[in-house]
Nucleic acid binder design. Sequence first.
DNA 1: ACTAAATTTGCAATAATGTTGCAACTTTTA
DNA 2: TAAAAGTTGCAACATTATTGCAAATTTAGT
Lengths: 141, 141
Amino acid sequence: MDQHFTMTDDILKKNKLSVTDGRKKILSLFLARDGALAHADIEKFTGEMFDRVTVYRTLQTFVEKGIVHLIPTTDNSILYALCKENCEEGHHHDNHVHFICDVCTKTICLDDVTIPKVKLPKGFTPNHSEMMVNGVCSDCK
Amino acid sequence: MDQHFTMTDDILKKNKLSVTDGRKKILSLFLARDGALAHADIEKFTGEMFDRVTVYRTLQTFVEKGIVHLIPTTDNSILYALCKENCEEGHHHDNHVHFICDVCTKTICLDDVTIPKVKLPKGFTPNHSEMMVNGVCSDCK
DNA sequence: ACTAAATTTGCAATAATGTTGCAACTTTTA
DNA sequence: TAAAAGTTGCAACATTATTGCAAATTTAGT
Ligand SMILES: [Mn+2]
Ligand SMILES: [Mn+2]
Ligand SMILES: [Zn+2]
Ligand SMILES: [Zn+2]
Protein backbone atom coordinates (compact mmCIF):
# COMPACT_ATOMS: atom_id res chain seq x y z
CA MET A 1 0.00 0.00 0.00
CA ASP A 2 2.96 2.31 0.44
CA GLN A 3 6.71 2.48 0.18
CA HIS A 4 7.21 0.80 3.54
CA PHE A 5 6.51 -2.62 2.06
CA THR A 6 9.87 -2.99 0.44
CA MET A 7 11.67 -0.86 3.02
CA THR A 8 10.79 -3.27 5.81
CA ASP A 9 12.11 -6.21 3.80
CA ASP A 10 15.37 -4.39 3.15
CA ILE A 11 15.90 -3.59 6.82
CA LEU A 12 15.14 -7.14 7.87
CA LYS A 13 17.42 -8.63 5.23
CA LYS A 14 20.23 -6.24 6.06
CA ASN A 15 20.01 -7.53 9.62
CA LYS A 16 19.96 -11.19 8.55
CA LEU A 17 16.46 -11.77 9.83
CA SER A 18 13.82 -13.90 8.15
CA VAL A 19 11.20 -11.74 6.51
CA THR A 20 7.95 -12.62 8.24
CA ASP A 21 4.53 -10.99 8.35
CA GLY A 22 4.87 -10.07 12.00
CA ARG A 23 8.23 -8.40 11.65
CA LYS A 24 7.16 -6.53 8.53
CA LYS A 25 4.00 -5.25 10.17
CA ILE A 26 5.69 -4.14 13.39
CA LEU A 27 8.55 -2.51 11.53
CA SER A 28 6.11 -0.64 9.31
CA LEU A 29 4.42 0.74 12.41
CA PHE A 30 7.72 2.25 13.51
CA LEU A 31 8.42 3.63 10.03
CA ALA A 32 5.00 5.26 9.84
CA ARG A 33 5.27 6.85 13.26
CA ASP A 34 7.41 9.77 14.34
CA GLY A 35 7.32 8.88 18.01
CA ALA A 36 8.17 5.92 20.17
CA LEU A 37 5.93 2.89 20.66
CA ALA A 38 5.22 0.74 23.68
CA HIS A 39 4.36 -2.93 23.51
CA ALA A 40 0.76 -2.00 24.29
CA ASP A 41 0.63 0.42 21.33
CA ILE A 42 1.74 -2.29 19.00
CA GLU A 43 -0.82 -4.72 20.33
CA LYS A 44 -3.47 -2.06 19.82
CA PHE A 45 -2.46 -1.55 16.18
CA THR A 46 -2.03 -5.20 15.28
CA GLY A 47 -5.05 -6.50 17.18
CA GLU A 48 -5.54 -10.22 16.84
CA MET A 49 -3.06 -10.40 14.00
CA PHE A 50 -0.28 -11.90 16.09
CA ASP A 51 0.19 -13.49 19.45
CA ARG A 52 1.42 -11.32 22.33
CA VAL A 53 4.45 -13.52 22.63
CA THR A 54 5.40 -12.81 19.04
CA VAL A 55 5.28 -9.09 19.68
CA TYR A 56 7.53 -9.48 22.73
CA ARG A 57 10.00 -11.60 20.81
CA THR A 58 10.00 -9.32 17.79
CA LEU A 59 10.74 -6.24 19.86
CA GLN A 60 13.50 -8.07 21.68
CA THR A 61 15.03 -9.17 18.40
CA PHE A 62 14.85 -5.64 16.99
CA VAL A 63 16.64 -4.24 20.04
CA GLU A 64 19.34 -6.92 19.83
CA LYS A 65 19.89 -6.24 16.14
CA GLY A 66 20.02 -2.49 16.62
CA ILE A 67 16.87 -1.81 14.61
CA VAL A 68 15.14 -0.10 17.51
CA HIS A 69 16.42 1.29 20.79
CA LEU A 70 14.95 1.44 24.27
CA ILE A 71 13.96 4.76 25.80
CA PRO A 72 14.05 5.17 29.59
CA THR A 73 10.84 6.09 31.37
CA THR A 74 9.80 6.99 34.89
CA ASP A 75 6.72 4.82 35.03
CA ASN A 76 7.44 1.18 34.46
CA SER A 77 6.75 1.15 30.76
CA ILE A 78 9.20 0.19 28.06
CA LEU A 79 9.36 2.41 25.00
CA TYR A 80 10.97 1.54 21.68
CA ALA A 81 11.96 3.80 18.81
CA LEU A 82 13.60 3.29 15.44
CA CYS A 83 17.36 3.66 15.36
CA LYS A 84 18.35 6.22 12.78
CA GLU A 85 22.03 6.07 13.58
CA ASN A 86 24.15 3.24 12.33
CA CYS A 87 23.47 0.89 15.21
CA GLU A 88 24.91 -2.58 15.01
CA GLU A 89 24.08 -5.94 16.45
CA GLY A 90 24.57 -5.75 20.19
CA HIS A 91 25.73 -2.15 20.21
CA HIS A 92 23.72 1.01 19.91
CA HIS A 93 25.12 4.44 19.07
CA ASP A 94 22.02 6.46 19.72
CA ASN A 95 23.09 9.42 21.72
CA HIS A 96 20.29 11.88 21.31
CA VAL A 97 17.87 13.55 23.70
CA HIS A 98 14.33 12.20 24.03
CA PHE A 99 11.42 14.57 24.36
CA ILE A 100 8.19 13.65 26.12
CA CYS A 101 5.28 15.96 25.36
CA ASP A 102 3.15 16.69 28.41
CA VAL A 103 0.16 17.42 26.16
CA CYS A 104 0.02 14.61 23.60
CA THR A 105 2.22 12.26 25.71
CA LYS A 106 4.20 11.29 22.63
CA THR A 107 7.86 10.50 23.08
CA ILE A 108 10.03 11.81 20.27
CA CYS A 109 13.66 11.19 19.35
CA LEU A 110 15.43 14.52 18.90
CA ASP A 111 17.98 13.04 16.57
CA ASP A 112 19.89 16.28 16.18
CA VAL A 113 20.14 17.14 19.85
CA THR A 114 23.23 15.47 21.29
CA ILE A 115 23.43 14.63 24.97
CA PRO A 116 25.93 17.00 26.60
CA LYS A 117 28.80 15.74 28.71
CA VAL A 118 28.78 16.51 32.43
CA LYS A 119 31.62 16.76 34.89
CA LEU A 120 31.32 13.89 37.36
CA PRO A 121 32.68 13.77 40.92
CA LYS A 122 36.16 12.36 41.49
CA GLY A 123 36.30 8.59 41.01
CA PHE A 124 33.36 8.26 38.64
CA THR A 125 34.05 7.12 35.07
CA PRO A 126 31.30 7.71 32.50
CA ASN A 127 30.41 5.23 29.82
CA HIS A 128 27.04 6.13 28.36
CA SER A 129 24.43 8.80 28.99
CA GLU A 130 20.70 9.20 28.57
CA MET A 131 18.70 12.39 28.67
CA MET A 132 15.00 13.10 28.56
CA VAL A 133 13.24 16.46 28.42
CA ASN A 134 9.58 16.94 29.23
CA GLY A 135 7.55 19.84 27.91
CA VAL A 136 5.36 20.84 24.97
CA CYS A 137 6.18 19.55 21.52
CA SER A 138 6.04 21.48 18.26
CA ASP A 139 2.71 19.93 17.30
CA CYS A 140 1.02 20.88 20.55
CA LYS A 141 2.38 24.42 20.83
CA MET B 1 19.00 1.62 67.67
CA ASP B 2 20.44 4.64 65.82
CA GLN B 3 19.68 8.23 65.08
CA HIS B 4 17.29 7.35 62.29
CA PHE B 5 14.60 6.48 64.79
CA THR B 6 13.68 10.02 65.58
CA MET B 7 14.65 11.33 62.16
CA THR B 8 12.02 9.20 60.46
CA ASP B 9 9.33 10.48 62.82
CA ASP B 10 10.31 14.05 62.11
CA ILE B 11 10.15 13.60 58.38
CA LEU B 12 6.79 11.89 58.54
CA LYS B 13 5.32 14.51 60.85
CA LYS B 14 6.65 17.35 58.74
CA ASN B 15 4.76 15.82 55.85
CA LYS B 16 1.55 15.40 57.86
CA LEU B 17 1.68 11.62 57.68
CA SER B 18 0.74 9.23 60.46
CA VAL B 19 3.80 7.72 62.04
CA THR B 20 3.48 3.99 61.49
CA ASP B 21 5.89 1.08 61.77
CA GLY B 22 5.89 0.47 58.03
CA ARG B 23 6.64 4.04 57.07
CA LYS B 24 9.35 4.36 59.70
CA LYS B 25 11.03 1.17 58.60
CA ILE B 26 10.94 1.97 54.89
CA LEU B 27 12.10 5.52 55.45
CA SER B 28 14.98 4.27 57.59
CA LEU B 29 16.08 2.03 54.74
CA PHE B 30 16.38 5.05 52.49
CA LEU B 31 18.24 7.04 55.15
CA ALA B 32 20.73 4.23 55.73
CA ARG B 33 21.42 3.74 52.04
CA ASP B 34 23.38 5.94 49.69
CA GLY B 35 21.80 4.55 46.53
CA ALA B 36 18.32 4.13 45.16
CA LEU B 37 15.95 1.32 46.12
CA ALA B 38 13.46 -0.69 44.10
CA HIS B 39 10.27 -2.14 45.48
CA ALA B 40 11.95 -5.55 45.41
CA ASP B 41 14.89 -4.29 47.50
CA ILE B 42 12.53 -3.05 50.16
CA GLU B 43 10.65 -6.32 50.24
CA LYS B 44 13.96 -8.12 50.61
CA PHE B 45 14.95 -5.97 53.60
CA THR B 46 11.60 -6.00 55.34
CA GLY B 47 10.79 -9.65 54.69
CA GLU B 48 7.47 -10.74 56.16
CA MET B 49 7.27 -7.59 58.23
CA PHE B 50 4.68 -5.93 56.03
CA ASP B 51 2.35 -6.82 53.23
CA ARG B 52 3.49 -6.10 49.66
CA VAL B 53 0.50 -3.81 49.25
CA THR B 54 1.66 -1.69 52.17
CA VAL B 55 5.04 -1.27 50.56
CA TYR B 56 3.43 -0.18 47.29
CA ARG B 57 1.19 2.29 49.05
CA THR B 58 3.98 3.64 51.22
CA LEU B 59 6.23 4.30 48.25
CA GLN B 60 3.42 5.97 46.38
CA THR B 61 2.66 8.19 49.36
CA PHE B 62 6.33 9.12 49.73
CA VAL B 63 6.52 10.14 46.08
CA GLU B 64 3.35 12.21 46.34
CA LYS B 65 4.62 13.98 49.45
CA GLY B 66 8.02 14.68 47.93
CA ILE B 67 9.92 12.47 50.38
CA VAL B 68 11.36 10.30 47.64
CA HIS B 69 11.65 10.78 43.88
CA LEU B 70 11.41 8.38 40.99
CA ILE B 71 14.45 7.60 38.87
CA PRO B 72 13.98 6.64 35.21
CA THR B 73 15.31 3.28 34.07
CA THR B 74 15.64 1.44 30.79
CA ASP B 75 14.45 -1.91 32.04
CA ASN B 76 10.97 -1.81 33.47
CA SER B 77 11.94 -1.33 37.06
CA ILE B 78 10.97 1.60 39.21
CA LEU B 79 13.66 3.11 41.40
CA TYR B 80 13.13 5.45 44.32
CA ALA B 81 15.61 7.69 46.12
CA LEU B 82 15.39 10.14 48.99
CA CYS B 83 14.79 13.74 48.04
CA LYS B 84 17.51 15.91 49.50
CA GLU B 85 16.23 19.09 47.92
CA ASN B 86 13.26 20.87 49.36
CA CYS B 87 10.62 18.94 47.50
CA GLU B 88 7.01 19.67 48.28
CA GLU B 89 3.73 17.85 48.07
CA GLY B 90 3.01 17.22 44.42
CA HIS B 91 6.09 18.98 43.12
CA HIS B 92 9.68 17.78 43.01
CA HIS B 93 12.68 20.01 42.49
CA ASP B 94 15.28 17.30 42.09
CA ASN B 95 17.34 18.27 39.16
CA HIS B 96 20.48 16.22 39.52
CA VAL B 97 22.15 13.57 37.40
CA HIS B 98 21.73 9.90 38.30
CA PHE B 99 24.64 7.53 38.01
CA ILE B 100 24.21 3.80 37.41
CA CYS B 101 27.31 1.73 38.15
CA ASP B 102 27.87 -1.03 35.62
CA VAL B 103 29.85 -3.03 38.21
CA CYS B 104 27.83 -2.92 41.43
CA THR B 105 24.59 -1.94 39.64
CA LYS B 106 23.84 0.67 42.30
CA THR B 107 22.04 3.81 41.22
CA ILE B 108 23.33 6.92 42.94
CA CYS B 109 22.01 10.47 43.10
CA LEU B 110 24.78 12.89 42.15
CA ASP B 111 23.24 15.70 44.13
CA ASP B 112 25.89 18.19 43.11
CA VAL B 113 25.80 17.50 39.39
CA THR B 114 23.11 19.66 37.82
CA ILE B 115 21.45 18.59 34.60
CA PRO B 116 22.65 20.91 31.81
CA LYS B 117 20.24 22.76 29.57
CA VAL B 118 20.08 21.78 25.90
CA LYS B 119 18.98 23.77 22.90
CA LEU B 120 15.79 22.23 21.54
CA PRO B 121 14.50 22.44 17.96
CA LYS B 122 12.12 25.28 17.05
CA GLY B 123 8.68 24.82 18.57
CA PHE B 124 9.69 22.71 21.55
CA THR B 125 9.29 24.18 25.03
CA PRO B 126 11.15 22.45 27.86
CA ASN B 127 9.70 21.96 31.28
CA HIS B 128 11.78 19.40 33.15
CA SER B 129 14.82 17.24 32.36
CA GLU B 130 16.24 13.93 33.48
CA MET B 131 19.74 12.63 32.91
CA MET B 132 21.38 9.31 33.70
CA VAL B 133 25.00 8.35 33.26
CA ASN B 134 26.24 4.78 33.23
CA GLY B 135 29.79 3.83 34.10
CA VAL B 136 31.97 2.84 37.04
CA CYS B 137 31.32 4.40 40.43
CA SER B 138 33.92 5.60 42.92
CA ASP B 139 33.54 2.48 45.07
CA CYS B 140 34.14 0.10 42.17
CA LYS B 141 37.03 1.99 40.58
C1' DA C 1 -5.63 8.85 79.87
C1' DC C 2 -9.81 7.70 77.30
C1' DT C 3 -12.73 7.86 73.36
C1' DA C 4 -14.29 8.95 68.80
C1' DA C 5 -12.80 10.03 64.30
C1' DA C 6 -9.53 9.56 60.84
C1' DT C 7 -6.18 7.00 58.74
C1' DT C 8 -3.65 2.96 57.62
C1' DT C 9 -3.06 -1.93 57.13
C1' DG C 10 -3.63 -6.85 55.68
C1' DC C 11 -6.13 -10.01 53.20
C1' DA C 12 -8.25 -11.82 49.20
C1' DA C 13 -9.43 -11.34 44.74
C1' DT C 14 -8.29 -9.60 40.29
C1' DA C 15 -5.65 -7.54 36.64
C1' DA C 16 -1.73 -6.60 33.92
C1' DT C 17 2.62 -7.82 32.20
C1' DG C 18 6.28 -10.80 30.93
C1' DT C 19 8.65 -15.61 30.27
C1' DT C 20 9.36 -20.45 28.83
C1' DG C 21 9.08 -25.05 26.38
C1' DC C 22 7.57 -27.27 22.65
C1' DA C 23 5.20 -28.75 18.44
C1' DA C 24 3.44 -26.84 14.14
C1' DC C 25 4.31 -23.85 10.66
C1' DT C 26 6.95 -20.64 7.57
C1' DT C 27 11.04 -19.03 5.46
C1' DT C 28 15.48 -19.78 3.69
C1' DT C 29 19.03 -22.44 1.57
C1' DA C 30 20.85 -25.30 -1.84
C1' DT D 1 11.43 -28.78 -4.45
C1' DA D 2 13.11 -30.89 -0.24
C1' DA D 3 15.75 -30.46 3.88
C1' DA D 4 17.42 -27.34 7.26
C1' DA D 5 16.94 -23.38 9.80
C1' DG D 6 14.29 -20.24 11.92
C1' DT D 7 9.82 -18.41 13.63
C1' DT D 8 5.28 -18.65 15.56
C1' DG D 9 1.24 -19.80 18.52
C1' DC D 10 -0.38 -22.07 22.31
C1' DA D 11 -0.58 -23.24 27.03
C1' DA D 12 1.19 -22.96 31.27
C1' DC D 13 3.49 -20.38 34.52
C1' DA D 14 5.69 -16.39 36.94
C1' DT D 15 6.03 -11.83 38.39
C1' DT D 16 4.34 -7.40 39.36
C1' DA D 17 0.74 -4.22 40.45
C1' DT D 18 -4.20 -2.65 41.74
C1' DT D 19 -8.64 -2.57 44.27
C1' DG D 20 -12.37 -3.02 47.93
C1' DC D 21 -13.24 -3.71 52.40
C1' DA D 22 -13.06 -4.97 57.28
C1' DA D 23 -9.85 -4.98 61.14
C1' DA D 24 -6.27 -2.61 63.38
C1' DT D 25 -3.65 1.44 64.42
C1' DT D 26 -2.85 6.26 64.95
C1' DT D 27 -4.35 10.85 65.86
C1' DA D 28 -7.09 14.53 67.83
C1' DG D 29 -10.25 16.23 71.26
C1' DT D 30 -11.76 16.09 75.83
MN1 LIG E 1 15.61 7.77 20.33
MN1 LIG F 1 18.05 11.37 42.69
ZN1 LIG G 1 2.72 16.96 21.80
ZN1 LIG H 1 29.78 0.57 41.73
